[in-house]
């Protein structure tokens, strides 16, 4: 028995090449779940959106790569 995973990353092609089953786009290599350009509230909302996509991907089958 394994643990289902979703990966938040920016280099999506690399993740796909090595066989990562559920891939969600992060904001940037430098800050996958945030963005220093945004104000605190907007950044938190962005993070929530990205994490939400990862959770959605987790509930789907493999290779159902979200956003």
């Amino acid at each position: 028995m394994g643990v289902p995973t979703a990966q938040i990353c920016s280099m999506k092609e690399v993740a796909a090449m090595v066989g990562s089953p559920r891939i969600v786009a992060g904001r940037s290599v430098l800050h996958p779940t945030g963005d220093p350009e945004l104000d605190a509230e907007a950044e938190r909302q962005l993070r929530r959106t990205i994490v939400g996509q990862a959770l959605e991907a987790l509930c789907g089958g493999a290779d159902a790569n979200a956003a």
């Binding site: 643990v3 995973t5 979703a6 990966q7 938040i8 996958p32 779940t33 994490v51 990862a54 987790l58």
Partner: peptide
């Protein structure tokens, strides 16, 4: 006891 994991990569 984790049933799922979110991995973040840079």
């Amino acid at each position: 006891g984790a049933q799922a994991a979110i991995l973040t990569s840079t």
